[in-house]
Design a binder for these strands. Structure first.
Length: 203
DNA sequence: CCCTGATTCGC
DNA sequence: GCGAATCAGG
């Protein structure tokens, strides 16, 4: 596989989104994460915007024997390229976790829900139809949720909110999340549904 | 041990 | 330019 325009495009896009090299490599296919990283460097877009796991490792490591040149910082990202690329595949986030199960305390009627800002949090809307198995699974895993706080959220912890943000009864699942997904397996099950499955599932 | 990105260097 | 091997870190 070679770095075609489209592939580089995807690379740039995903890298810009903070996707990891391995994820990008997986998405592109035919390349390893090393190849992706190598390309990223060659393209001169090393540092990303979002928080990275090792974004700070830009320090020079004089280990072998070669000071090498100073890393150039791309102050001018070159000319803009008018290329509209929809590229909308992949599953769509399902709009709506359930705010029940582990939520003993109900919201004091006129109490408005306040979602703590900071990181991408899933919406907490109304009840909806979710596959029974998935729901059961969620209920079960929520029992053993780690109940982590918003500050403990990482790329590898399930960010599924449980409870009411306006009360003490609020925490995040915190179980190991699927790589690339914001949730653990069980919550991914209810958060992401194939369009086919979610489309007109009740009738 | 899993993962991450960074760098080197033969091709 | 490419990317495997290697390195460094969480």
């Amino acid at each position: 596989m070679s770095w075609t325009d489209e592939r580089v495009d995807v690379l740039k896009k995903m890298w810009g989104e903070g996707q990891s090299a391995s994820q990008i490599a997986k998405e592109l296919g035919g390349v390893t994460r090393n190849a992706v990283i190598g390309k990223v460097h060659r393209l001169g877009l090393s540092n990303r915007a979002g928080s990275g796991t090792t974004a700070k490792t830009a320090a020079p490591k004089a280990k072998p024997a070669a000071p090498a040149a100073v890393k150039a910082k791309p102050a001018t990202p070159a000319a803009p390229k008018a290329k509209a690329k929809p590229a909308a595949k992949e599953e769509e986030p399902y709009t709506g976790p359930k705010t029940e199960s582990a939520t003993p305390k109900a919201v004091p009627h006129n109490r408005r829900q306040i979602i703590p800002a900071g990181q991408p949090l899933p919406p907490q809307p109304s009840t909806n139809e979710i596959p029974a198995e998935a729901l059961a699974k969620v209920n079960e895993i929520e029992k053993k949720a780690k109940k982590i706080s918003v500050m403990d959220l990482t790329e590898k912890t399930c960010k599924w909110p449980i409870g009411d943000p306006a009360t003490e009864e609020f925490w995040f699942c915190g179980l190991p999340s699927q790589t690339g997904k914001p949730y653990c397996e069980a919550h991914v099950g209810v958060a992401f549904q194939p369009m086919s499955a979610r489309r007109d599932r009740r009738r």
